[in-house]
Design a protein around this nucleic acid. Structure first.
Lengths: 339, 339
DNA sequence: CATTTTTGTTTAAACGATTAAACAAAATTA
DNA sequence: TAATTTTGTTTAATCGTTTAAACAAAAATG
């Protein structure tokens, strides 16, 4: 009993054809339909608490009004914020966002991607993990509209919205130099991802520009797995070297989180013993005695742009690719005050 | 060009009927089908990179293998963890989770709910905001399988998985009393939500049990909007009263977050000046000098149970409702050490 | 008043899958 | 060898919509 009511039920109740009901409920053929009949249909639909079967509608119209989103790690505030802005922007255009978190795992990424494509998402917004090139190419071939966000592969021409990581990293490093630091370490992910490499490149370029010799041991790379342990090691390396660094730039908020915890435990003083700067924020730092200097990404703008670019592509598949690099903002705080 | 291939295309390529292709690809009629033909069909499907149109399949089978999830606030680590566990558990059974965050806004909640129902989610897992009773009743009437999580309405018989908030709050308060505190304040949300009321009830019961007179001013209620401001006021009230409290119990991690920030700013010492205890955790506290005593909810178990209960309901609509109350664990840390 | 136009509605095919039922050919049984 | 069973495959209806095309009746036109 209590089966879902469908168009046919309403049609039967009012005594018209399903076509007419469909027209009325979708406000099509505006002028042509008898006002009384239209009213009656609407009233009956309401009374019978009819709701469109989106599945059936989608099958016919070939549109699901769904955007698939794959992020790196939803428990990272950066991803979470991105997700929220994307959702909000999509909602403005009556799109629903379905998403998953790859956790930097290519297998998982592939699985989610499959699920989204199978469910006929109208388009995708993706933050691909390492080694996702093949899938990207495949999407292009299948002509599924998509926009990359936060990351992209320089060798593949796709639409994307991302931070200018080189510039941001350069800016952050320059800031530390301007504060008087000459021995500056960086802890970044050991990863082939382009956007992370760009951060390293920016760091190196800033050193060079200021005629500071790069000491290889000052660039520490940590694996995403075993992050805590490796970060702690990296920090020790940097701070216990013969000539310890006086400032550290972190490649992400997660690395920074682990590092700061450890630095706190070891009772190093910030910024007296070591100045700190990192990419992205976390309100986890709100309770640390020295608020962290960081690169803030224009997350809202990124999310909104990605949605807009994607929707344009969905509307018109022939739209050409579009690359957007946004500038980060350096927010200077206690952790890098001149000591 | 490059249109998605469908069953018909494969059928045409192999030279059989679509029915046969469907049977093969779904491993139905196992014994009956000619092995060679089956092989050929599978090979061709692969070669043409066929993927099922889930929309069409869903229309026919009336199953989307989708679970709708509505949480209170995805940016809260508690919700985020819940979401992840639910997703993982659902994935085990080949279900996809679509979700939204109500942000405690009934309008938004209703909108998301509508979207999920329209998209024919097979079932729902919900954390309803205030005043959602009507919608709950409606779901029951429409016989849409659902399970409430974290929250429920005592006046409506539904399936749910939630913390025994009364017991947990009692336990937390008793702990503070055991630490020697007699003047204990509580800051909770000003809300009609039952699970929050239960927390207040547990606090009051523990006071009574220990023959401590309840001082109304020691129970502060803060509105979800303007949370920061009201929390700061509440903390001042509690700590600057004629007889200031020596311990505070927070009704949530978010309240605790705002309070601790403020307490830190005002340079109160924890636990010397004031001992703290709260519901839920946040790694935001990891950098606070006094790790926070808290009530830990069995989030993983909650998520898994909710999914299992829901799937049972989806399989067999006649399954009766089931109520599960889980115990919280008190994790004692520095913030409530005996001073 | 015959013709054309407009108005209001219905018919019927389609979207891409599933699946019960029908069917033909081959294999088995009597 | 006729009857029955088994094997392998196809036919065709169906899910709940959308929508072009057809249609009939009423209104406007010449």
């Amino acid at each position: 009993m209590n089966k879902r009511v469908c168009l046919k039920d309403i049609a039967a109740a009012v005594g018209v054809s399903t076509a007419l009901v469909s027209y009325v409920l979708n406000n099509k053929k505006e002028g042509r339909i008898n006002k009384n009949v239209a009213e009656k249909i609407k009233a009956t639909a309401q009374a019978m608490s009819y709701r469109t079967n989106q599945i059936a509608k989608s099958l016919k119209t070939n549109r699901t009004y769904t955007i698939g989103l794959i992020l790196a790690d939803i428990s990272n505030p950066f991803s979470a914020a991105l997700a929220r802005f994307i959702e909000d922007e999509a909602a403005k255009f009556n799109y629903t966002v379905i998403f998953g978190s790859s956790d930097e795992n290519p297998e998982k990424y592939k699985k989610i991607l499959d699920a989204l494509v199978n469910r006929q998402a109208d388009g995708l917004i993706l933050s691909p993990p390492e080694h996702a090139e093949q899938q990207i190419l495949q999407l292009q071939q299948q002509q599924i509209p998509f926009v990359l966000i936060d990351r992209y592969f320089p060798g593949i021409e796709t639409s994307y919205v991302a931070l200018d990581n080189y510039e941001a990293s350069f800016k952050a490093t320059q800031h530390l130099i301007d504060c008087g630091h000459r021995r500056i370490g960086m802890i970044n992910y050991a990863s082939s991802l382009f956007h992370l490499a760009e951060r390293t490149r920016g760091y190196l370029a800033a050193l060079k520009k200021n005629e500071i010799d790069f000491i290889p041991a000052n660039l520490q790379e940590v694996k995403m797995l075993a992050l805590q342990e490796e970060t702690e090691n990296a920090v020790s390396q940097l701070l216990q070297a013969g000539l310890p660094v006086s400032a550290i730039l972190f490649g992400s908020n997660v690395i920074a989180m682990h590092a700061v915890k450890y630095i706190n435990q070891q009772q190093y003083r910030v910024p007296e013993d070591v100045a700190l700067t990192c990419f992205d924020e976390t309100d986890a730092f709100d309770l640390f005695y020295a608020p962290l200097t960081c690169i803030r990404q224009p997350v809202k703008q990124m999310g909104e742009l990605a949605v807009q670019m994607l929707l344009r592509k969905i509307e018109d598949t022939s739209t050409s690719t579009q690359q957007v690099s946004l500038e980060g903002t350096l927010i200077t705080r206690e952790s890098s005050r001149i000591s």
